[in-house]
């Protein structure tokens, strides 16, 4: 329940100051541990007006891995994902309670700039949402709004290469992005998120609108991306979670005493464990297909 104070303090000195002071460069000290804690959530919850969508989430997400969030629809997994880069701020009725620390720093502290948070924690959405602009301008959008305009062409190329899209589009960067196939559009959106050099990539059911071949391409991409980034993915597809994730968190719907439906975290563990030997019977029921 309680955050471990020593660890938190260490991380704050290492990276935490950057959120409030965006001009500071990341320090190049060696990581203290192989897999540091990126997100540390304590009693995290979300309300939309009077309706509680999520409550009492306690979990840690570690660096350089893929963490999958699974669970039946309405269990709050997307809502939770949106807490991690403060996208819930954009919904007027939404209110977040509890704490969510990013490298030890409270994401919801008054001094924290939501824009800076979203710059470091990129997001890819359920449906590909390229802007009705050229491929180049799509990738360049983030760097431009954040003032990272030096070597723009290189930056765009790098992002497209990392998203494994460069070879397919390098000859038509000035063409409209809406002319790409669905799978290409989604990789374009991944490249667009990578172009602002985030530390974390949040993906909200990124393959749900795609065909199996495009899905395989995105899954491959996730495995390569995790060496440089921390990836958190919401998926309704359990096979996908089993294929790509190192850690898996299972969310479910709790009716509660009042009868109001509300999302809760049931358990989080290594993916192997969740799918073969979960602690909670509800998890087992879900992963074996007896529920949801």
């Amino acid at each position: 329940m309680e955050p471990t104070p020593a660890k938190t303090a260490e991380q704050t000195t290492r990276r935490g100051v950057q959120l409030a002071a965006p001009t500071a460069q990341p320090t190049s000290e060696a990581p203290l541990a192989e897999h540091d804690v990126v997100f540390e959530c304590r009693e995290l919850g979300v309300r939309y007006g009077r309706n509680r969508a999520l409550r009492d989430v306690n979990l840690e997400i570690r660096e350089h891995g893929v963490t999958a969030l699974i669970g039946p629809s309405g269990c709050g997994k997307s809502t939770f994902l949106r807490c991690l880069n403060r996208m819930n701020d954009l919904i007027p009725s939404a209110a977040v309670d509890g704490t969510c620390r990013y490298y030890g720093e409270d994401l919801y502290a008054p001094s924290v700039d939501a824009i800076e948070v979203r710059k470091r924690i990129g997001m890819v959405f359920q449906k590909p949402n390229p802007f009705p602009k050229s491929i180049f301008d799509n990738i360049a959008f983030g760097p431009r709004v954040l003032g990272m305009t030096s070597n723009l062409a290189d930056r765009v190329e790098q992002a497209l290469r990392r998203a494994a899209l460069w070879d397919e589009v390098k000859d038509r960067l000035r063409d409209g992005a809406l002319g790409l196939s669905g799978g290409q559009q989604q990789r374009l959106c991944i490249a667009r998120a990578l172009a602002v050099e985030p530390d974390v990539l949040l993906m909200d059911e990124p393959c749900s609108a795609l065909d199996p071949i495009s899905t395989a391409a995105i899954e491959d991409l996730m495995t390569t991306l995790k060496s440089d980034y921390t990836v958190v993915i919401v998926t309704h597809n359990m096979q996908q979670a089993a294929r790509v994730a190192d850690q898996t968190a299972f969310f479910s719907v709790d009716q509660g005493e009042t009868g109001r439906r509300c999302g809760v975290l049931i358990e989080m563990s290594s993916t192997d464990r969740i799918f073969t030997n979960p602690d909670d019977p509800r998890t087992e029921a879900y992963v074996t297909g007896r529920f949801g």
């Binding site: 996208m87 949402n129 802007f131 983030g142 709004v145």
Partner: peptide, 27 residues
């Protein structure tokens, strides 16, 4: 203009002014 475009640009760290002037108005 689909709200997914707004979300996409907020997700990249754009502020409200940039979302309005660079995404919504052009679209």
């Amino acid at each position: 203009v689909p709200s997914s475009l707004r979300e996409g640009s907020f997700g990249l760290g754009a502020n409200r002014f940039q979302v309005a002037t660079r995404v919504v108005v052009p679209a």
